[in-house]
């Protein structure tokens, strides 16, 4: 965090509370956008604080959601009087801590709304379970809703927009090697060379299935197939994120991106925007996640809107 502060004087970094916010605070009248979660996913979330995205981020311990006090501190830092929107990845810990923080913020008379991100098709959704994980679509929500917040949309409209982005987004991830949570002396799972783990999350937790290592083209077909089985992509205009897990070289991600693009086109989809890189990571895990969002004119405009954060920056 000290490194982030050193490189980005435009950010206010509270090393003690582990909260990152915009140095100038939130402009009065603008809804504050707050996210957060466990660390180990860098640049998510602190790297997305800045114009056009988040107003503040709360950074928990590695792979552990921030505590309510941290989320409350981020909420206060992001409050410009027009309410605060929490963008929460759907994990039990994140949901519980943000819920407790929202109740505390209510005591402060800060109005809070929440968007829950649950885009991972590897988890079978059911009303009886914790539901799907939040993964790559978190970036879509933070970017699109962040752009809309700069245009002074009201809290309820931003929450609805965020939910629409989630509804239009799907993700699927593959791991080629595991990662080791600090404090633990072993990796999150043992993965022999020559095998890969399908349907992984972003915490080094095992996936749903283990299969022999496949080529980039085959991985693209598996990931896109899993996504398309859940929400058809044919005829859609797509925003695509080919996201590295942290330990896969950009060169290999670009190979995969090419194959994902071809696979989607083969299914009749039109890829109108593509982002390739390590944006939502899992420490040193090798692997990648494919996220897609079905765009319309408005979402495309908000995606293209200027953004100036440590990790995402264009059009300004």
């Amino acid at each position: 965090m000290r490194g982030l502060a050193a490189a980005h004087p435009e950010l206010a970094v509270d090393v003690e509370a582990r909260v990152v916010s915009r140095a100038g605070g939130t402009r009065p009248g603008k809804v504050g956008l707050v996210s957060g979660g466990g660390s180990g996913h860098e640049p998510l979330h602190a790297g997305f604080v800045g114009h056009g995205m988040l107003d503040a981020a709360a950074c928990g311990a590695v792979f552990t959601s921030p505590v309510p006090d941290q989320v409350l501190a981020a909420t206060r830092a992001a409050s410009g009087g027009a309410g605060v929107l929490h963008v929460v990845k759907n994990y039990t810990g994140d949901v519980l801590n943000f819920r407790m923080a929202a109740e505390l913020a209510d005591d402060d008379d800060v109005e809070v709304a929440t968007v829950l991100v649950d885009d991972d098709v590897a988890v079978t959704d059911s009303t009886y379970t914790a539901g799907r994980r939040g993964t790559g679509a978190t970036l879509f929500v933070e970017k699109v809703v962040g752009a809309a917040a700069e245009e002074d949309l009201a809290l309820a409209e931003l929450a609805a927009l965020g939910r629409e982005v989630v509804e239009r987004s799907r993700s699927f991830g593959v791991a080629l090697s595991p990662c080791t949570t600090p404090g633990s002396d072993k990796p999150g799972f043992d993965l022999p060379a020559g095998e890969m783990e399908l349907g992984i999350g972003i915490h080094g937790e095992p996936g749903r299935e283990r299969v022999p290592l496949a080529t980039s083209r085959e991985i693209a077909a598996i990931a896109v197939g899993a996504i398309a089985d859940d929400a058809p992509v044919g005829g859609e205009e797509l925003l695509v994120l080919v996201n590295g897990a942290g330990g896969t070289p950009l060169l290999e991600l670009q190979v995969l991106a090419g194959d994902v693009h071809a696979e989607l086109q083969g299914r009749g989809a039109r890829v109108v925007r593509m982002l390739v890189g390590n944006h939502v990571t899992s420490l040193e895990m090798a692997g990648a996640m494919v996220s897609v969002c079905r765009l319309d004119e408005r979402l495309l405009r908000l995606w293209d809107a200027p953004v100036a954060t440590p990790a995402l920056r264009w059009g300004r």
Binding site: T64, S65, V67, P68, G93, L96, N97, M100
Partner: peptide, 12 residues
């Protein structure tokens, strides 16, 4: 515990 643990275990 709520203020220090984080995750789901802290609140629970």
């Amino acid at each position: 515990l709520v203020s220090t643990v984080g995750g789901a275990s802290g609140p629970l």
